[in-house]
Design a protein around this nucleic acid. Structure first.
Lengths: 215, 215
DNA sequence: TGTCACTTGTCAGCGACTGACACTAAAATC
DNA sequence: GATTTTAGTGTCAGTCGCTGACAAGTGACA
């Protein structure tokens, strides 16, 4: 339920093809040589395209590396929109994340996409500059999520801080959960990560107050 | 209580001087021409130093721009360490932030440092690449804060997710509060920002559950 | 079929950043 | 106080990310 609608023209199809090829080429090279060890020229050359063309498709090198995440983030927003309004915001976000993960199990191309996702996260963890850009993109997404939550709850998205707060707190939990989960690189296990996320979210209300003799 | 101990050697003193001069020069130029509109060569030239030397003091252009934040972040960590252990983690962090802000009122050099801080935040908001680096640095600080909290509470800093969670949630609240407060650029009002932070932190437990007819 | 709009390659250039080397001046040693 | 050691700096040449401008090729559409 994520794939973009296939477009008609030959031109459009070719464009999509080279874009996909560039992303795939980048992933391969980054995995082999690391992010900084790979030049944009190499990525382009492997697809038989000029470097200039690469920069017509992507604003910068970061965007090529982080492109695999767009799909997952889009599907999270879509899943959140689809949740019934009777659920609380936090519950809805949690459930939306659950359906994103299970989406990778349904599809036949799931494993491949999941591997790409895992590789991208490994790259982010290993590369500070990429980590920085990733965090900014996540912050941008938070605004989108906050808007969806505000609409669900019928509150003012700018005057009321709660939508932004809820989105930010959810992302914080996701962040913490993923650092717990992915101590060693390798395959990304969506089931384990989701379990960790649930544990983290459950621990959330407990951080207020004292912790002593509750460990 | 933040300033580094004045060092003895002439060499050390000169080094500190050029470092400070580079930061000041960068701030002036960034304010006048923006971040991207200013070259590292210009910053160095204004201090009568080669560009190469600038890059011996700072790893990259971002670090020059964000240097004014180091002091504030250091003083937050110090203030948190100084809070009595009877306070809950969230209360301690809130109070620590309070004493950071009031620290700018005590000192005679406070207003100047506060203006520098405000300018830096304006720059961050206006400059995406700087925003990205800033977020990564904040994430790095979170680990430090989490470690302090873990020690305060006597829990394991890696096995227990709560320290990291508390630090991340606090930062999320700070982030939301500051976007509420600083809609238009200009002077940074620490009193108003702290009031907004308190309001945001108070709203935090309320984001769980439903919001309807509670607006 | 011919025109038009769009995509691409080439090239020249800027700015961030780095390694190597020579030079100068503070600092430590005698 | 003279000398040897050490640390900081400037210069230079080079790589890489990224951009503007122009020319050439190729799908779209009448």
């Amino acid at each position: 339920m994520v794939g973009a609608a296939t477009v008609s023209g030959l031109r459009e199809r070719k464009k999509q093809q080279t874009r996909d090829a560039l992303i795939a080429s980048a992933q391969r090279l980054f995995a082999a040589q690391g992010y900084e060890g790979t030049t944009t020229g190499q990525i382009a050359e492997a697809v038989d395209v000029s470097q200039r063309t690469l920069f017509r498709y992507f604003a910068n090198k970061d965007e090529v590396a982080l492109a695999p995440l767009d799909e997952a983030q889009d599907s999270f927003a879509a899943a959140l929109r689809a949740r019934p309004r009777r659920e609380t915001p936090m519950t809805a976000m949690r459930a939306a994340m659950g359906s994103v993960f299970s989406g990778y199990a349904d599809d036949e191309s799931g494993p491949r996409r999941l591997r790409a996702l895992g590789q991208t996260f490994d790259l982010i963890v290993r590369t500070p500059s990429l980590h920085a850009t990733h965090l900014r993109r996540v912050a941008d997404r938070e605004a989108q999520i906050a808007a969806i939550v505000a609409e669900r709850e019928g509150v003012d998205p700018v005057a009321d801080p709660r939508p932004r707060l809820a989105a930010a707190v959810f992302d914080a939990a996701l962040q913490v959960a993923s650092t717990c989960q992915r101590n060693e690189p390798g395959e990304l296990d969506p089931r384990a990560l989701y379990a960790e996320l649930e544990r983290t979210l459950d621990a959330l209300p407990g951080i207020f107050g004292h912790w002593r003799r509750t460990t």
